[in-house]
């Protein structure tokens, strides 16, 4: 296998994995994870393998310019956005790492959900600014969490919330899966029903261009209500239509397709690291 060069993009590829490739007779070099397509093609000239670990996007036509490339691997699950596979035959074997990220993403989403429901960031920021909050919040033990899309991430999020907090779980999945019947969760018949039934909704759809663009709009948000919360785990263009076509508070583009932070209830939360706990963590309703 000597002479086979593997190019790895991005900064996250562990040293142990690099050593494993080298032990298999491959040579490894790394490139930045933010190159444009032309830059990646230039870096890949003469390479045998490619690990796409950055945020670059490779079109179907890019591979035609890389005659020596035999294998490409996307580090993640949703490869379609980053690694476009040609429709016809290709000398490149395309691979990916499905669902290895489910636990980590669900963990992050659960943290955001907890932050929203318990108003953690707002309370901590208020205390830091000298404002003492006596406002009671709901608790994850008393809210009903709606899981839209019970795939790998949705299932993991439901499992975590139910196991850790006893959270009641309702879910909607576009296809009926008999194996879900054994789970201690309640299925509803439609996305609208889910928004009506839940206090907090987590969107966990895999993006399918042209198939599930902007599936959530004003009617679902109204059903969720002014006290509801929405945690968007999906790619943003597959999930939320701007209810009023207004510019979002975070400065996003106005109008569809989608804003991540809606300007009317229910509330969503831009990602904010929480660095300390407030002095009133027990004030839940």
């Amino acid at each position: 296998m000597s002479g086979r060069r593997v190019v790895v993009s991005g900064a996250t590829f562990p040293r142990s994995a690099r050593h494993a490739l080298e032990a298999g007779g491959l040579t490894v070099e790394t490139i930045p994870g933010d190159l444009d397509e032309a830059g990646v093609i230039e870096a890949l000239r003469g390479a045998w393998g490619y690990v796409l670990g950055g945020s670059e996007r490779m079109s179907a036509k890019a591979w035609e310019q890389l005659p020596g490339l035999e294998v490409a691997c996307f580090m993640g699950t949703g490869f379609k956005t980053f690694m476009e596979i040609p429709d016809g035959p290709s000398p490149v074997r395309f691979t990916y790492t499905p669902h290895a990220n489910a636990f980590a993403v669900a963990e992050f989403a659960l943290a955001q959900t907890l932050d929203l429901v318990r108003s953690i960031t707002r309370t901590v920021d208020g205390v830091a600014a000298g404002r003492w909050s006596e406002r009671a919040t709901p608790s994850l033990g008393s809210v009903r969490l709606g899981i839209a899309g019970l795939g790998h991430i949705g299932r993991e999020l439901a499992r975590m919330a139910h196991a850790a907090f006893g959270t009641e779980i309702v879910y909607w999945n576009r296809s009926r899966r008999p194996e879900f019947d054994a789970l201690p969760y309640r299925a509803v018949g439609s996305l609208d029903e889910l928004f009506a039934a839940a206090d907090v909704v987590s969107l966990n759809f895999a993006y399918e261009p042209g198939g599930n663009d902007a599936v959530v709009g004003a009617e679902q948000l109204r059903a969720l209500g002014p006290d509801g919360f929405l945690v968007n785990v999906s790619r943003r263009n597959c999930s939320i239509r701007s209810p009023c076509g207004r510019r979002s508070p975070s400065g996003g583009s106005p109008g569809p397709p989608s804003t991540a932070t809606t300007s009317s209830p229910p509330r969503t939360l831009p990602t904010t690291p929480t660095v300390c706990s407030p002095s009133c963590p027990s004030a839940s309703s």
Partner: peptide, 25 residues
């Protein structure tokens, strides 16, 4: 909104890298 970088835990990166290595080898 959960950012795309939500997957960035050392555990997840390790699993993905192991799978990438298995694919290439």
């Amino acid at each position: 909104m959960t950012p795309h970088s939500a997957y960035l835990s050392t555990h997840a990166i390790g699993r993905m890298a192991d799978m990438a290595v298995a694919n290439l080898l």
